[in-house]
Design a protein around this nucleic acid. Sequence first.
RNA 1: CGGGGUGUGGCGAAGUUUGGUAUCGCGCUUGGUUCGGGACCAAGAGGCCUCGGGUUCGAAUCCCGACACUCCGACCA
Length: 479
Amino acid sequence: MAQDKKQVEQITDMEADFAQWFTDVCRKAELIDYTSVKGMFIYRPYGYAIWENIQHGLDAEFKKTGHENVYLPVLIPESLLQKEKDHVEGFAPECAWVTMGGDEKLEDRLCVRPTSETLFCEHYSHIIHSWRDLPKKYNQWCSVLRWEKTSRPFLRHREFLWQEGHTMHATAQEAREETMQMLGIYADFCENVLAMPVVKGRKTDKEKFNGAEETYTVECMMHDKKALQAGTSHYFGDGFAKAFDITFTGKDNQPHYPHQTSWGVSTRLIGGIIMTHGDNNGLVLPPRIAPTQVIIIPVAQHKEGVIEASRAVMERLQKAGFRVKMDGSDQSPGWKFAEYEMKGVPLRLELGPKDMEKNQCVLVRRDSGEKSFVSLDGIEETVAKLLDSIHDGLYAKALKNREENTYPAFSLEEAKAIQQEKGGFIKTMWCGDLECELKMKDEAGMSSRCMPLEQEHLGDVCPICGKPAKHMIYWGVAY
RNA sequence: CGGGGUGUGGCGAAGUUUGGUAUCGCGCUUGGUUCGGGACCAAGAGGCCUCGGGUUCGAAUCCCGACACUCCGACCA
């Protein structure tokens, strides 16, 4: 069945209204529900299951690289938050405050954590004394609160789920290596598990994290050509250590400040998955993250043996390690086809009386709609191959979208024209001055995305001011 | 935070201009027939019309206010 044919009428076409399409998918695929508090969303079982799979995958990578999970409190005293000047300036405007305990007013009001650098620093100041105590490589899975003015499912919540890694190292070099290692883990995860190609790069001073020396990012292009920052990794130097008075005694018996990193990804990744792979029939999930990889639909299930045969196939596939479900409800087959397409299940397996006679089943890919009749002998291998092929196809399609919508520009006018006519990423040279960055924002409506680690030489001068260029940089409209 | 739009059973809407018993489609429940692309027939259940004030004999409808959703900006690692 051709995939360009729209089969789910409940979802707005993405070409007609991308924002409405996104909201429709979030709701119709049963990922999310709204609550009576603005910007606060319920992750429904299917949506939360995607997050759990992200957690399992990333957590395993964190553990492999020597990180330990911890849990810190949800409340931060204002006095603690204020110790690092840039940090408090960045976050104070979007903090939610606890000012009452029961019916008593609190002397030092408490901020609901927007991020936990300050708490980690306080804790590290207690437990780091000697070079033998380093490195400390902690990670926390939790939710954070930011009082955003506008909110959208997955992309901007007032409360969202994330992980925040916070590490302390004896040397700057080791901390820098950690920063880059974690950026690499995020990039690999996005590409190999979520099928989302990324651009790895460094943020400009304007865009970097408040209090960081350097911020690195993995940037993705969504289907509507807008940019989404999928993950971020910061090198802090010893700025926080100084502000929080964290010192250790080195092998030289002298006091030293440790060097710090932090890094995180959030449930925004789910928004990225939706906007990278989704189509007009709804969600399209990359197989390695899909809560259900194969949905089995028994056809004419009242006929003798159909349910039993379907269940047998399900059990075989489950035994082979796939996440498989069978829908034996009394909805019509057509209803079920539409339902699981909307929910983005990568592979549908149909099994009816005709198939049973021939010892076969029907497999339908969610990404292309391609249908094949395959033998039940060796079904495990067939499914494995198809799921890998779907992953590769999704990745290739997303990469093609990014490549076809990335343009070099050699003047501000050209950048502006490309942005207005085509959108997408624009790459230029850049002198490094904030003034030029602001000009690009004001005149072309684009913010800097990153200075990619893989630099290209597009020229010698900054196209905005004409001064000598220091970097190649990506620009775009971002979520 | 500024500007626009919207708020009526679970969902989508009509009704608001011109105040007078709450409508439709889908979904839901039960029974039956169906079953390879959102099946059909029959009988049912379900509504503080977002919330709070006001005007009126009477408000979904008019007036004032609040809240939420949504779009465009600003802001936002």
